[in-house]
Design a binder for these strands. Structure first.
Lengths: 245, 245
DNA sequence: TTGGCATTTCGGTGGGCGCCGAATCGTTCG
DNA sequence: CGAACGATTCGGCGCCCACCGAAATGCCAA
């Protein structure tokens, strides 16, 4: 009756196959239909139908490149909403050894649209706070870039534009850590920088990220961050944690 | 395979009946099952099943009061996520005269969980900015309370506690205005204050809010805000508007 | 032009689930 | 206690839609 189409958008994400595709696209990359069909474990025909619905619903966009069609999330807003729902979802029970390792890899380091998330993402954010480049205001739950942070960003050649529509820094709730990590321009530039330096690379086509040996050195040198983190298997309980029934 | 249950939560919101209930509960109130059944236009038996699923999924909570059971959103996080999805949804075409007036009422003034939204919500937020009580930073997309705002809040008897877990002020994207309005403690206290003063009242059991005559005076006196807004039928195009295909 | 590859369209099938009526449970009245 | 009422459970019906195979389309390379 007075429903402003909430169920239409939600239903698009409410199918297991489409959800798997969306979660996979949260890596922020452009992927062909065949790859997404493989991820969702459905026939190409089925995947095509799903992708058409997602495009129709405005959740993803498509680019033609020759005989390939590459699909990606339609906007950062979509990524933000998906992350929000993910943060509501209960932590899933592990179903297999394979799933468990993939789980652990995701928790450790992944891309969230165009920035870094997981233990690596929150660790980098914490390090930038420790170094005085970022300030976190727990009262407003905001992240801001300091002058020192701005000049440091210039040293690294990050492109930061205050006049742009997206904020310079923005806290993004990490669904695995239940804490905030840096998104916005800083998050995006930091991720891009680390990828171009070869310090982190994508593992496969999804969101999982791997830190290279040079990356390990760079993390220690620039951020004073030990990687892999101590007690990697154990989840460090941190402040700002939120409990769910 | 690697789906962290996105589709489970999304599917809960992906049914038209459940979505209608959730949207109705966005008013922030506790409602009995029968009321929600009426809203969703389904039999009590069906509504009961839906509500059980929503509780099971952690989206709503239930309180027993005698032979009644009152349902409400489980947390502000849920409300935030629902608003997020709503902001992705295309503006729905009007289906009937009744729906059209309800639409217009929703756009004009409604509650978003525990704070005010719609033209009234953004108008109040703008007024607080004009009066120097709030500052909006478009670079970070943040709202902050000024010293003048803090003392003004004290004048009105608002309970603001910086040590609380929820931020003092927080920008919340308004799906009908496509702009930000004030949420957080300030938003909640302002709404509670205006309700107890009798300046705004709920119209029916839903989210629609009506401004009383005293409310109209108070809005002019305290905020310099004309109500109803000029050209109420026409939607004023505002900055920050986002186009959708 | 032809062949190959990625993707889409179409028809048909099956399962899941939203829906209701009837019966049941629990609470609060008279 | 019994009647009334709100809410839930159960059984069964029906529809929607995810799914696939087969065929068609579009694009590129020889």
């Amino acid at each position: 009756m007075s429903d402003p189409q909430l169920h239409r958008v939600a239903a698009l994400m409410g199918d297991a196959s489409r959800a798997a595709m969306l979660v996979h696209l949260m890596g922020g990359r452009h992927l062909p239909a065949s790859e997404l069909a493989r991820i969702a474990r459905v026939a190409p025909a089925t995947a095509s139908e799903h992708l058409a619905k997602l495009v129709e619903g405005g959740l993803i966009q498509v680019q033609r490149h020759g005989r390939h069609r590459y699909f990606a999330l339609a906007s950062p807003e979509v990524a933000h909403v998906v992350e929000g729902i993910l943060s509501l979802a209960p932590v899933e029970p592990v179903r297999s050894l394979n799933a468990a390792t993939h789980q652990a890899q995701l928790r450790a380091a992944r891309t969230c649209y165009h920035h870094l998330a997981g233990t690596l993402g929150t660790g980098l954010t914490d390090a930038m706070i420790r170094n005085g480049w970022l300030v976190f205001d727990p009262i407003y739950e905001t992240l801001t870039l300091t002058e020192a942070g701005t000049s440091q960003a210039a040293v690294w050649g990050w492109h930061l534009d205050p006049t742009q529509r997206t904020p310079l820094v923005k806290p993004c709730l990490d669904w695995s850590e239940r804490r905030f990590h840096a998104a916005g321009q800083v998050g995006r530039e930091m991720a891009a920088w680390m990828f171009t330096q070869g310090w982190v690379t994508h593992l496969g086509s999804g969101r999982v990220v791997r830190v290279s040996d040079q990356g390990r050195q760079a993390l220690a040198e620039w951020f004073g961050l030990a990687w892999p983190p101590a007690h990697a298997g154990r989840k460090a309980t941190a402040s700002g944690e939120r409990s769910r029934s």
